[in-house]
């Protein structure tokens, strides 16, 4: 279990992490979601005691990180940066970390095997591809067989096979009852792996919810209808007890009904339809909406640094 309480990090005037309070629970994958620069990595570094919080507190199983005896046996982390000496072999990289925490060398062979790097264990890390580097980082996280695992953007730079491997790994770790905390800037990635979701934007907590709740609340489903007899269609829909909204391109969006019901209703009134399609707003859209709101809130209160224009936020999303 990881508990954050009012965790705050300020760099001069800039607030990177703003009063974060949430708990990461065992047995599930908790996704940590936010745009690039939202403060995810800073938060993770504070959890590991690498960065000192300006205010607030973070505890690992009720204890401060620096009080943990052999911390790698409590919490293993893959941080975003590669963080391996290029001239050192994968085996020696893991061995020095293992020795510092009293982990037997046999465990180094086990984790190398688990991530599929046994064949290149004696090779220098500088020859490793991005994917191999990620695997080495994951091997380091697994080294102490910890109850808590933290991954910062683990699928970055991986090929489809590697991505699939990481998703399966995270789910199986959680199924073993471990705490799994994984960051991403991609909602689609989280939707596939996470059971619980913590969303931050500009260092602030925006949502702390189960994945199912988030999907239910944020993925609006509706039916798109287009007809040359638009006015009549509106009347008919209204008569059928359905509310339709203009979509802006001449089509209508009908909430709370199905394509079948609308199609049959239109047929009964002999209306011509040019389009009849069920739609679902993507989670990605819901997510952009959420972070965009946080920006508006910032600008509205005028607190802290001036917020960047909203368009910039959207742009950072589509790029990611």
């Amino acid at each position: 279990m990881i508990e954050l309480e009012g965790l705050t990090k300020r760099y001069g005037e800039k607030v990177a992490v703003n009063n974060l309070t949430f708990t990461v629970r065992p047995g599930i994958v908790t996704g940590f979601l936010g745009p690039n620069g939202a403060g995810k990595s800073t938060t993770m570094r504070m959890i590991l005691g690498l960065d000192h919080p300006t205010a607030g507190d973070v505890r690992i199983d009720g204890t401060h990180y620096h009080r943990l005896k052999n911390p790698l046996t409590y919490i293993g982390a893959l941080l975003e940066a590669k963080g391996v000496h290029p001239g050192r072999s994968a085996y020696n990289h893991l061995l020095c970390l293992a020795q510092s925490n009293g982990i037997p060398p046999r465990r180094v062979h086990e984790v190398l095997d688990a991530v599929g790097l046994t064949a290149v264990a004696r090779k220098k890390a500088k020859g490793f591809s991005l994917g191999m580097g990620q695997r080495l980082g994951i091997a380091a996280a697994l080294l102490g067989d910890p109850r808590i695992l933290m991954f910062d953007e683990p699928v970055n730079g991986l090929d489809p096979e590697g991505i699939h491997w990481i998703r399966t790994l995270m789910k199986s770790l959680a199924a073993q009852g471990r705490t799994v905390f994984v960051s991403s800037h991609l909602m689609s990635e989280m939707a596939l792996t996470a059971d619980h979701l913590v969303v931050i934007g500009q260092g602030r907590l925006l949502a702390d919810t189960s994945m199912a709740d988030f999907i239910e609340r944020n993925s609006r489903s509706y039916v798109r209808v287009r007809s040359p007899q638009r006015e009549r269609l509106l009347d008919v829909l209204h008569g059928g007890g359905m509310t339709a909204a203009e979509s802006g391109d001449g089509a209508l969006e009908v909430d709370g009904s199905t394509a079948e019901a609308i199609g049959e209703l239109a047929a009964r009134h002999q209306l011509t339809l040019h389009e009849l399609s069920p739609q679902q707003a993507s989670l990605e859209e819901a997510f952009m909406q959420l972070t965009a709101e946080s920006v508006e809130y910032h600008a509205h209160t005028g607190a802290g640094t001036p917020a960047p224009p909203q368009q910039q936020w959207g742009a950072s999303w589509t790029k990611g």
Partner: peptide, 11 residues
């Protein structure tokens, strides 16, 4: 960047 792994292992 090894410093992060080192200090996470030995806080």
């Amino acid at each position: 960047g090894m410093i992060r792994a080192s200090l996470a292992a030995v806080p």
